[in-house]
Nucleic acid binder design. Structure first.
Lengths: 143, 143
DNA sequence: TAAATTTAGTGGACTTTGTCCACTAAATTG
DNA sequence: CAATTTAGTGGACAAAGTCCACTAAATTTA
């Protein structure tokens, strides 16, 4: 592969790192960090999840995760119950309050993204999405 | 804009966040953090830079930046000299050792990216780059 | 042109985020 | 059933980042 190719990819990476950084800033006003929200996302998406699954999905330290889960439970955003299949494992789910908060954070994120693209016309938006899908398809083996 | 559009963008953001996280992992073995390397990048690219420029480019806290610059100077990777135009400002540049280290880190990063795309054929690589350029072009007003 | 404000950078003190290790207990493997 | 692996917790610490107060130079403004 050419140097040019790699340089272009790196330029995109810098660009997108900055963009993601910008988007994630709105979490600074919330009481929850990016990791915490991502954990809620994982639980929300799975419906029920074990810590070990989240660990794998996020590639996060289990000790760190354990602490975050403790905080989320203290805040009554998640519930834990013993797994029936595995005595070591704990099954996590979002409480009503957790779902509510998650929805609210989701709305805020969606508004942010709206702000990013609302000056684009429909065709440009469709193209943007198509490029994103294409990139995911090309690179997805790497994750 | 449609919900679908926003969902797709969010899916891409999650995907690319993970990918960037993966790529940045190689820095864990180095003695320098992502921020430190990015600062070196900014100085390298500019040739000479003031702290305030880096601050603006990276959107980083000035106090934090000041500390990092101190470390880089201690490690003899950057040199500071008083600005001639502005008595408050300091002009930063990479030393030979700084350039050398930066080149080495660059090579490592490029190899990482190579690993990401080297299983793709030339056409796919070109398409990937084209998609990235297109996204940058569409979104660049936001940065 | 002198006072008021802004800008560049530093450093103290602190919080948040993340890592490493040792540990318990249950599950799995041999 | 002994040895190993896996799930999760918690202590102790390190790294990353923030907030505030400060000095000194530059710029604005009255």
């Amino acid at each position: 592969m050419s140097t040019k190719t790699i340089q272009e990819i790196r330029a995109f990476n810098r660009f997108y790192t900055d963009l993601i950084g910008l988007l994630n800033k709105h979490l600074l006003n919330s009481d929850y960090s990016l990791s915490e929200v991502r954990i809620m996302y994982e639980i929300h998406t799975a419906g029920e999840a074990q810590a070990s699954q989240i660990m794998a999905a996020m590639d996060i330290d289990k000790s760190y995760l354990s602490r975050i889960l403790k905080k989320l439970e203290k805040d009554q955003l998640i519930a834990r119950k013993a797994s029936e299949q595995d005595g070591r494992a704990v099954v996590l789910s979002l409480t009503k309050a957790g779902e509510d908060l998650f929805q609210e954070l989701t709305r805020a994120t969606e508004q942010q993204i709206g702000g990013l693209v609302n000056h684009l016309n429909t065709k440009q938006q469709e193209e943007l999405v198509a490029h994103m899908q294409a990139i995911r398809k090309i690179l997805q083996g790497n994750l």
